[in-house]
Design a protein around this nucleic acid. Structure first.
Length: 478
RNA sequence: GCGGGAGUAGCUCAGCUGGUAGAGCGACAGCCUUCCAAGCUGUAGGUCGCGGGUUCGAACCUCGUCUCCCGCUCCA
């Protein structure tokens, strides 16, 4: 019987076997920043490649791009990130409730008579424009504005939370105008290149643009291992469609993404769909694909959004460049609608790790025994094949190395001759290697080897010449 | 951000009323050669998260700080 999974055990395992380390650990780490180790990097890359090929190879009408992390500052005005994430906030210390300062003051102004209310709002707007937070707090205190929940006026200082990291472009510059942001999402890199790709790729609607890349969010509270990091990687695909067809395409991608998730080797009951009732400003439909994480329950891994023409429309407005498509069937120009699929790569890594992790009790009447095994889908496993000579004598290592030479160019292999064979198997279980091949004395006679399967722990004897093709067949993605 | 818990070897942890660190597993080298871990011999690895204070003396008391986990909050 597998033991109940605990997040803490999985995190320890990730550290112990080189999947995930805390960033800058020797300096006490950096909050909510993590590094992938030798195993984690392979796992992550396998997931990334699998997504990329699922999008760009299996769909003739989806192409991939790789946009820069830095973008023109106006991009973030057009996207709404600057306006929506720069509001000064204030917390009530008693109720712990956080308010947007402008909302708090406006709500209070509404309770005053008209002239006084207008005067208060006017004062507030002057101070907001000047970013004078101390005076704003004074204004709140002078007006004896209270928290609706606690009824007290016990406020923290006003703070400005900015989701976006910024830096200066140009080494000597300190001008506000030269501020550039580290992108908080990858989607905008696709939208601003919409026309470039459509024209140069001669793309016809409907078509998609896929991208994998880093994004950065200066979260106020970032926690939860690699689930919510300040620097993270997204895999996004924006699908450009004819206005009016968004319902069908939304359903299509919902289904397509669900099917993709099933091929990760995760059972359907571990997933939930969560349809958004309250929609973001750009969306006319949205849902999350949620995975049942240990300890946490269902949490979002992927979002599918029907974004209408909001993004292209805004970029058209801000850039004053036409971002329309000429539809030869309809014989007219229009701004395409967009269906977005956006999946967190790090969250997917965590999901795959969580699902794969299993502590098994293998005890028999005679002896206690257990193992930790990562039951990765073979195409995602960091190492596909381990090759073991049963002993390091009698020329067995030479034959094993011969097999290594045959397999090495095709998939990631691992060779080991140290320790008892059982111990070597268990070490591979712990990093999720699906196949182990052992060269024994019979191999010297008839060129057969045993292949041992990770999940069943069963072995079969096969010709050594077939190992490569058997493993290739099992790790085939499509 | 608030509240709670925690940080000692790669991992899990012990360490009494303060007397300058231990175990198990793991790792490494060798023996054994055996198809499912814990057999034998040996080795390495810790200024006890970091910094200050109290003390003759701090892993232990105290203050600060960093990091992680849980709950709330937040979450395009």
């Amino acid at each position: 019987m597998p033991k109940q999974k605990q997040l803490q055990d999985i995190i320890s395992h990730c550290k112990e076997y080189g999947f995930v380390f805390q960033s800058s650990e020797i300096y006490d780490g950096l909050q909510a920043v993590y590094d992938y180790g030798q195993m984690g990097a392979e796992l992550k890359k396998n997931i990334k490649d699998y997504w990329w090929y699922s999008m760009t190879r299996l769909h003739d009408n989806i192409v991939g791009i790789d946009a820069a992390i830095f973008m023109h500052p106006t991009v973030w005005k057009a996207s709404g990130h600057v306006d929506n994430f720069n509001d000064p906030m204030i917390d009530n210390k008693d109720s712990k409730k956080r308010y947007r300062v402008d909302h708090l003051i406006e709500a209070h102004a509404a309770t005053l008579d008209e002239a006084a209310g207008k005067e208060l709002v006017a004062k507030m707007e002057l101070l907001l424009a000047a970013d004078d937070f101390a005076a704003l707090k004074q204004l709140i205190e002078d007006n004896k504005i209270k928290c609706a929940i606690s009824g007290t006026a016990n406020w923290t200082d006003i703070r400005q939370f900015n989701l976006m990291f910024d830096t200066q472009m140009g080494s000597t510059s300190t001008e506000e105008d030269d501020k550039v942001y580290l992108r908080p999402e990858t989607a905008q890199g696709i939208f601003v290149n919409f026309l470039n790709v459509q024209k140069t790729g001669r793309m016809k609607i409907p078509f998609g643009i896929a991208q994998v890349g880093k994004a950065f969010r200066n979260e106020i509270v970032a926690r939860g291992f690699i689930f919510r990091m300040r620097e993270f990687e997204q895999m996004e695909m924006q699908y450009f469609i004819k206005p009016g067809t968004q319902k069908e395409w939304y359903e299509f991608w919902k289904q397509a993404r669900t099917n993709w998730h099933k091929t990760l080797g995760i059972p359907a009951e571990q997933y939930h769909f969560h349809d958004h009732v309250k929609l973001a400003h750009y969306a006319d439909a949205a849902c999350d694909i949620e995975y049942n994480f240990p300890d946490w329950g269902f949490k979002e891994v992927e979002g599918i959004h029907s974004r209408t023409d909001f993004d292209l429309g805004r970029h058209q407005e801000f850039s004053k460049k036409k971002l329309t498509y000429f539809d030869t069937e309809e014989n007219k120009h229009y701004v395409p609608y967009v269906i977005e699929t956006s999946i967190g790569l790090d969250r997917t890594v965590m999901m795959v790790l969580s699902e794969a992790y299993e502590e098994q009790d293998l005890s028999t009447a005679e002896k206690q025994d257990s193992r930790v095994v990562l039951r990765f889908a073979p195409h995602l496993a960091p190492i596909k094949l381990a090759v073991f000579p049963l002993t390091k004598k009698d020329g067995l290592p030479d034959v094993a190395k011969e097999l290594m030479d045959i397999c090495r160019p095709h998939f990631k292999c691992f060779y080991e001759e140290k320790d008892a064979i059982g111990k070597r198997y268990r070490r591979q279980d712990a990093i999720g290697t699906p196949f182990c091949v052992t060269i024994d004395h019979q191999t010297l006679e008839d060129r057969t080897v045993t292949i041992r399967h990770r999940d069943s722990m069963e072995q079969e004897r096969i010709p050594m010449d077939k190992v490569k093709d058997i493993v290739l067949e099992k790790i085939k993605q499509f």
